[in-house]
Write a protein that binds this DNA or RNA. Structure first.
Lengths: 111, 111
DNA sequence: CTCGAATATACCTTGACAGGAATATTCCAA
DNA sequence: TTGGAATATTCCTGTCAAGGTATATTCGAG
């Protein structure tokens, strides 16, 4: 989960992933479209690859990169665990304030 | 989108967000549960706050932090734009290989 | 009004990482 | 078989961010 997020946290890598959303691409094409030098494109692709976000298939001289679904699914599942948060039936602030009061009271205090 | 991802990319901050999934918490409690020193907890919360991931409500001496739904929704929308990828009706590798061949051919080649 | 608890901020140091440039590697075509 | 295209790797350098420590700030209790 963490390697996925830090891979995506780098702006150029995020753009690479968004490029690949529309289909596989060659290293050179990625570098061109993003205005990167080829070595940096390769390096970013390596990071994405180690995070499992992309996979590569060699074709003669070139390497074709494409997205892998699995880490995206994983991220999706993680996000889903927060659905209560954005469905808003879940604030708990009031409850928490009561808890705070309670723990502040001295043990022999009457509610 | 990018500040959200880089906020979440840091392991301790990810843990903070996961802690807050179950309800609001005080700075001190967060530091305790994660084994962080208080200043680092505050600093991480600041980053999360600037990314819009959490909001704070002061109660006397303490600051209560809780999650904000919006950036999670944003992340969710972004992820959804990749649904084609993991629904797998979308590989396009074969198409792309054909494209590569085509562009390799000299202009006057017959298919 | 003083003290201690809770939190934020400032400063320093160190490590990781991104970009640049040069070079190695692999492959095809002529 | 040689050359050039496509890609990966290496080395260097500068920057930035995280942790540690000390300190400032704010608040309520007594």
């Amino acid at each position: 989960m963490n390697s996925i997020l830090s891979a995506l946290a780098e702006p150029n890598r995020l753009k690479i992933v968004e490029l690949l959303r529309d289909g596989p691409l060659t290293v050179g094409e990625i570098a061109d479209r993003l205005g990167l030098h080829q070595p940096q494109a390769s390096k970013h692709l390596r990071v994405l690859s180690e995070a499992g976000l992309v996979e590569m298939q060699p074709v003669a001289n070139r390497r074709i990169y494409r997205l892998r679904p699995q880490p995206l699914l994983e991220l999706n599942r993680w996000l889903a665990s927060f659905s209560r948060v954005w469905e808003e039936r879940f604030d708990r602030l009031d409850d928490y304030l009561l808890e705070l009061q309670k723990s502040d009271r001295k043990p022999d205090d009457k509610p």
